[in-house]
Simulated scan of single mutants.
Amino acid sequence: MVNSGFTHTLPVLRVLENEHQFLMHEMSQWHAIVLDFEKGLYSREEGLVALKQLRKMIVAFIEPLKNHTEKEEKYLFPMLSLYVGNDQGPVQAVQEEHDEIDAYIGHFLHHTRGDLSSFSLEMMQDVVKDAGEAFEVIMIHFVKEENVIFPMVINVLRAKEQDDLFDQLYTSILPE
């Protein structure tokens, strides 16, 4: 059997896994800039160019990310909550992570809007930390979903519910 890069064979989980892989690829592009800031590789002028590029990449990343998280919040989490509840436990935890990710990205975008020409290199390095934190939370979040939430889909949901969930989630997260 050829390795497709997917861990799961269940179609609904393949959809989510594919979205995670796409989002991780996109994140790796902008996270490289974050890492270069952390390593102190930029002069102030280079940093301004890099910060503007980072902002542009994160803005492009937001729509696919939001489309992915909204599908989970609208379909996946409520279906699992019927069986495991949502006032505590893994479903609530991953939902809260969505808010944490939004907060880090929102904070980064808020502080990088408008004219950046007055930013010192230290200010740039400081604001880029929010993008780095968003990256870390997203990576941990995906691991949790794939190791806790995905097995719940297999073990808790009936085959008909898995099929219904596939029908609901099988949509593109890319901007139109």
Rank of each mutant, 00 (worst) to 15 (best):
T9V: 02
K160N: 07
T112P: 03
T69Y: 05
L35S: 11
D126E: 14
E96Q: 15
R113D: 15
A134I: 04
E146F: 02
V153M: 05
R55Q: 10
E146M: 02
G85F: 08
K52N: 10
L10T: 12
R14W: 06
D115G: 01
A50G: 08
M24I: 05
Y104E: 15
I140H: 14
N3M: 11
Y104G: 06
E17R: 03
T7H: 09
H141A: 07
E45T: 07
I149H: 03
L174Q: 13
D99F: 00
D36W: 04
P11G: 13
D36G: 08
E176H: 12
V91W: 00
W30E: 11
I101H: 14
Y104V: 00
Q92I: 00
E63S: 08
L121I: 12
V94M: 10
E26W: 08
N3P: 10
P90G: 12
R44Q: 15
P64F: 09
N18H: 14
V84R: 05
A32H: 12
T9L: 07
A103H: 13
Q95G: 06
L174S: 09
N18I: 06
L76G: 00
F135S: 13
L65H: 04
N147A: 08
V15L: 07
A159H: 05
I149E: 14
E72F: 01
A103W: 06
I101P: 04
R14K: 14
V2L: 14
P11K: 13
V59L: 13
E146V: 08
H31M: 06
E136G: 05
E17M: 03
D130V: 02
K56M: 05
I33F: 01
F135R: 13
M139I: 07
L51P: 11
P175I: 02
K160C: 05
A50M: 08
L165K: 00
K56T: 01
M1Q: 12
L169T: 00
D130Y: 11
D167H: 09
R113I: 06
V137G: 02
P64C: 12
L80I: 04
D167Q: 15
E97C: 07
P78V: 04
P151C: 14
N18E: 14
S81P: 06
T171H: 13
M139V: 00
V127L: 06
Y75D: 13
V153C: 07
K56E: 15
P90Q: 11
K66T: 10
H98M: 05
H25E: 15
D87P: 02
I101C: 04
I58S: 00
S4F: 04
L10N: 05
D87R: 12
P90R: 05
N147Q: 15
V148P: 00
L76D: 10
E161K: 02
H20E: 10
I154R: 15
I62W: 12
S117G: 03
M57Q: 15
A93Y: 02
L82Q: 15
